[in-house]
């Protein structure tokens, strides 16, 4: 099962990617926390935009699933075909 992840803001700069496709195992639905951890593992410079030092999801990150803002719950189960959008807070003016 593939989860498409769209990246915006500094996450795009730090990863050099606009979208990332994450393959999950065949057992059960992938969890939001697993998707974020996968990105953090592959793009270490993006880790502090995704997670706080204590391992919880960063407060400056807006997560949407299929264009609806989601509660930042790492245990949130994702459905097949879902698109996760990750926006870092921006304040350029």
């Amino acid at each position: 099962m593939t989860i498409q992840v769209k990246l915006f803001g500094q996450l795009r700069t730090k990863t050099g990617q606009e979208t990332i496709a994450i393959e999950s195992g065949s057992e059960g639905s992938p969890k939001l926390g697993d998707v974020l951890a996968d990105i953090a593992q592959n793009y270490s410079e993006a880790k502090n935009l995704l997670f706080k030092p204590d391992g919880t999801i960063a407060g400056g990150l807006l997560i949407s699933i299929d264009d609806e803002a989601a509660v930042p719950d790492p245990d949130l189960a994702l459905k097949a075909g879902s698109t996760v959008t990750l926006l870092t807070a921006i304040s350029g003016g």
Binding site: Q10, L49, L62, I90
Partner: peptide, 10 residues
Amino acid sequence: CLYPEDPSGW
């Protein structure tokens, strides 16, 4: 509500 905390490294 949208961004409870500022982003790291802004």
